[in-house]
Design a protein around this nucleic acid. Structure first.
Length: 687
RNA sequence: UGGUCUAUGGUGUAACUGGCAACACGUCUGAUUUUGGUUCAGAAGAGUCUAGGUUCGAGCCCUAGUAGACCAACCA
């Protein structure tokens, strides 16, 4: 809060404007209004961070309001999970509210609407009503119940409430405008009959209010100043305001609804319905499966509240629909965990390493840094012995100079231990390496301060002592979907894009013994591999670790680069791209200067022209010709090209059809400067 | 064929009432490093959807297009 925030998003700006216009700061009040019909996901986190963030910024209360008007879908389990997640994210709500707390008030207001002739009971089938509603392009028509008397409506509504009718037989509708271009205004439903117990009101009610009727009035009851919701409710604003108009007391605060774009994440889906489908089809193990974009899934995966809040902050708020790349989320968690996670060693794909000059049966206790990023984090002990496991991919019998790991005849450092040299391998009948034999430089032990201990070698490997290692299960995760936006395809169901290899279980990984006492909230970095956290499936006999995210890996990237090459080369057809080491080509430089040419005047203009002329000396005609096709609008570039052309012609470039066409187009242009240059070029008088 | 909204590097957001398009992620160099991590230094990449217009000057204002999203649940 010490530094001023970079720049305000449009909602923060809106509030600033309201404040500037005289809205009293102490009346600011926000709310987060989840429906308890599913678990919160990373998209909700955006809304939570927005609303609670606004509350923190202005020191204003933020209510948690459960929008529980549909007992058919809502459950206490979700209420509890939602509350837990919000607290876990680190936010505190002012008041825990429920729309169901307002059922009586809502009912009273509905009676008032009926009395004023603004609502009526309709007994038609849903299909009939839908038909009368028309379509977006054709107006609706009035149904037969629309002009029933107030008395009749009153009595029918009473009887609905009393439970005299079947579920679905009658509804209460607002009487607004069946011809409105906004479909929502064509006599929307206020109440329907649902004969199902509610998680809070039990069987007190058998009629339940609809979202539109409930939401705005709840905001009003709680005196919410700014009711922020996602874009799909934009159309509802007209209704929101209409309902408020009917009941608002001018002495009280009138809430304002504003909309922002919901946040999508690449390679996943974000709708509760689709997440529920993943759960119900057992595609994932549950709402908190570590591959799920739910708050609980991310938590189990090892994400921290800080990382999620930071992600929301970095993602920003706007009004256009967008897909944020998961790489930003991964960046956020790496950034957080790098500072805090304890460094340990674990080998996931082991191969045996024998140090032939190290005594059999000897064990040394070495010291390992807990976190090099945090000098105060201290050290922990790690046992070392003659036989170790190292990562299978950390050894090659022979390799090129770019392989920094163990090969025969080369030296590498065993992290926190000795420098070793590969000597020989033992293979089984089918040629697989079963053991690697090496010798250690016994003077090189880390931390001893000897000259040998500070020698530089080109690689460092992680390892575990076989005798001391503990076995554990490790679960690695990949993106749940293979498509960047799995639910954006009209012709294909999102389930078709499920990644069949999103879960990789390593049944027997070897960990250093320090991990024996890990607890659920601990965050570790398995050195050189990534960040890991204990999973709740762990038992006293079997630890289970989840991989949160890998370390950035420029080596792996380099290795896979050749495969990706074709794609990239397609995007690189521009011959004007940089030449040599970061050197811009002359033609590129000219383009850059020319861009702003028309904005210049006086000395600056003269200087720019001189620069272009000078650079033009180094340009070939082949480089220049493509610029002839520059759009008419980009006058600056065309002027630059014209000046360059003049120089080239002076140097003896032959005139041709393209050149003539470019010059005459320049002569005919509306821009005076361009015409000037074209004239000069045409007459050969261009110095 | 209706209404509403949106359009800025690969991605996500900036640019106060018009004034040289900025930041982050990602990508690529180089240095440092007992993690091919971190850190540090640097680079490439956008003429702001298109076409007109207003203006000395437009990402921003005007007009007309184009593209995408949303809108006809007794869901929220």
């Amino acid at each position: 809060m010490t530094e001023e925030s970079a720049s305000l998003n449009f909602l923060e700006q809106l509030i600033e404007d309201d404040l500037a216009a005289g809205f009293p700061k102490e009346k600011l009040r926000f709310r987060f209004p989840p429906e308890p019909n599913g678990y919160l996901h990373i998209g909700h986190a955006a809304s939570i961070c927005l609303n609670f963030g606004l509350g923190e910024l202005h020191n204003a209360p933020v209510n948690l309001r459960f929008d529980d008007t549909n007992p058919a879908k809502e459950e206490q389990e979700y209420v509890d999970a939602i509350k837990y997640d919000i607290q876990w994210l680190g936010f505190k709500w002012a008041t825990e509210c429920y729309s169901s707390d307002y059922f009586q008030q809502l009912y009273d207001w509905a009676i008032q609407l009926i009395k004023e002739g603004k609502a009526y009971v309709d007994g038609q089938s849903a299909e009939a009503m839908a038909e009368q509603k028309g379509t977006p392009t054709t107006p609706g028509v009035a149904g037969p119940y629309r002009d029933n008397s107030v008395e009749e409506n009153l009595s029918m509504f009473e009887r609905m409430k009393a439970g005299e009718f079947e579920q679905g037989s009658y509804v209460l509708r607002a009487k607004i405008d069946m011809a409105s271009p906004n479909m929502l205004m064509r006599d929307p439903i206020l109440y329907r009959i649902v004969k199902k117990a509610h998680h809070r009101t039990g069987s007190d009610w058998c009629i339940y209010p609809m979202y539109d009727w409930t939401h705005g009035e709840s905001d009003y009851i709680e005196q919410i100043s700014h009711s922020l919701c996602t874009l799909e409710f934009k159309m509802h604003r007209e209704l929101y305001d209409w309902f408020l108009d009917q009941i608002v007391d001018p002495k009280l605060l009138r809430p304002k609804q504003r909309e922002f774009a919901r946040r999508n994440l690449s390679y996943t889906v974000m709708s509760k319905r689709k997440l529920l489908e993943l759960v119900q089809t057992k595609t994932v193990s549950g709402w908190d499966d570590p591959r799920m974009p739910t708050i609980s899934g991310l938590r189990r995966r090892g994400y921290t509240p800080e990382s999620i809040r930071n992600f929301s902050e970095l993602s920003g708020i706007s009004k256009r629909d967008s897909v944020t790349d998961v790489s930003l989320l991964e960046y956020c968690i790496r950034e957080d965990l790098n500072k805090t996670a304890t460094r340990v060693m674990a080998v996931l794909d082991p191969v045996k390493l024998v140090i032939t000059n190290y005594p059999e049966g000897k064990t040394e206790i070495l010291q390992a840094e807990n976190n090099p990023e945090d000098p105060k984090s201290g050290m922990h002990e790690v046992p070392f012995s003659r036989e170790l496991y190292i990562e299978r991919e950390d050894f090659k019998e022979e390799a090129g100079g770019k392989f920094f790991r163990l090969t025969l005849g080369n030296e590498v450092r065993l992290k926190s231990a000795y420098i070793i040299k590969g000597e020989s391998v033992v293979k089984d009948a089918s040629g697989n390496i079963t053991e690697i034999h090496c010798t250690a430089d016994l003077d090189s032990r880390s931390g001893t301060g000897t000259e040998a201990s500070t020698r530089k070698v080109k690689g460092t490997l992680h390892w575990v002592s076989i005798q001391h290692a503990i076995k554990a299960e490790v679960r690695e995760y990949d993106r749940l979907f293979l498509d960047e936006a799995p639910d954006s395809h009209e012709d294909k169901n999102f389930m078709e894009f499920v990644n069949p290899n999103s879960l990789n279980v390593i049944k027997e990984a070897y960990l250093e013994p320090y991990l024996k006492n890990a607890s659920l909230s601990d965050k570790f970095q398995f050195q050189r591999l990534g960040y890991f956290t204990l999973d709740k499936d762990s038992t006293s006999e079997q630890l289970v670790f989840n991989k949160t995210v890998g370390l950035r890996d420029s080596w792996a990237k380099q290795n896979s680069a050749p495969a990706a090459q074709p794609n990239q080369s397609v995007k690189q057809p521009n011959p004007n791209a940089s030449q040599g080491q970061g050197q811009r080509s002359a033609i590129n430089e000219i383009q850059k200067i020319a861009k702003k040419y028309t904005n210049l005047s006086g000395d600056k203009l003269a200087a720019a022209r001189a620069d272009i002329a000078k650079l033009a000396e180094q340009v070939t005609y082949e480089e220049l010709e493509p610029l002839f096709g520059t759009a008419a609008k980009k006058v600056g570039t065309r002027i630059g090209a014209m000046i360059t052309l003049g120089i080239l012609l002076n140097k003896g470039q032959e005139r041709n059809k393209e050149i003539d066409a470019f010059i005459s187009a320049g002569l005919a242009d509306g821009n005076e400067q361009l015409v000037e240059e074209a004239k000069a070029v045409a007459s050969g008088n261009n110095q």
